[in-house]
Amino acid sequence: MPGPVQSIERAAAILRLLARGSGRLGVGEIAASLGLAKGTTHGILRTLQGVGFVEQDKSSGKYQLGATLLHLGTSYLDVNELRSRAINWADALAARSGEAVWIGTLLDGKVLIVHHVFRPDDSLQSLDVGALLPLHATALGKVLLAFDTQAAACLPDTGLEPLTRRTLVSPAALKRELTKVRERGFADDIEEATLGQASIAAPIRGYGGLVVGAISIAGSVDRLCPSSAGRPDPALVDFVQNAAQMISRDLGAGRW
């Protein structure tokens, strides 16, 4: 096992220093206090600033703890912000796939629908924003479960609620399914929440690759899984993953 990472130790020391006393310090003061080179200190501060852990005062140039640190345990990306950043790509996904698009985030052991784009056939549809879906029976939920350890902890240890005869009700089966989701980078639900309906979802990532939500298309199982093998159409899977990647890139996820 490798030893401690020096720059992380130093970053922690800087945060402790800023948490103490008046809370506003210049680069020179921090460097002098910790016995570090000014350049090194500046580099670490800029990185901490990039992830929101420290903020720089515009007029004085001094550093203080960032607001993000105060909300570390809670949702770190505002859901309305997520919708606003994703809306163009969600539209493009609906247009390309011909299906309805949902974006979901985790809320109290459920999937919260934060954005909904109608299926582009101009039929009568109503907005499902604000609706809650089960985690274990939807593609959105499976993506959130697979990439968010906190979400997995929300699940009961015993049987899961069956919604159709295809719903995965055994925790062991769901666990195997989630391993598959992590390997493939997408999830599907084929008549697991509603008979005749299917959905395909992929993770939306923010800074550092952290999964902040999931995007899915949902529609009739005949269209989403046209082959008799009961697998989702690879072209549609590509569209969903591509949209997720474009949103992730806009959110600053870097290489994802």
């Binding site: 539209d91 609906a94 247009a95 909904h116 784009v117 109608f118 582009p120 056939d121 101009d122 549809q125 109503s126 907005l127």
Partner: peptide, 9 residues
Amino acid sequence: RNWHRAALW
């Protein structure tokens, strides 16, 4: 023909 409804309030 390219115009489609995405949401309705």
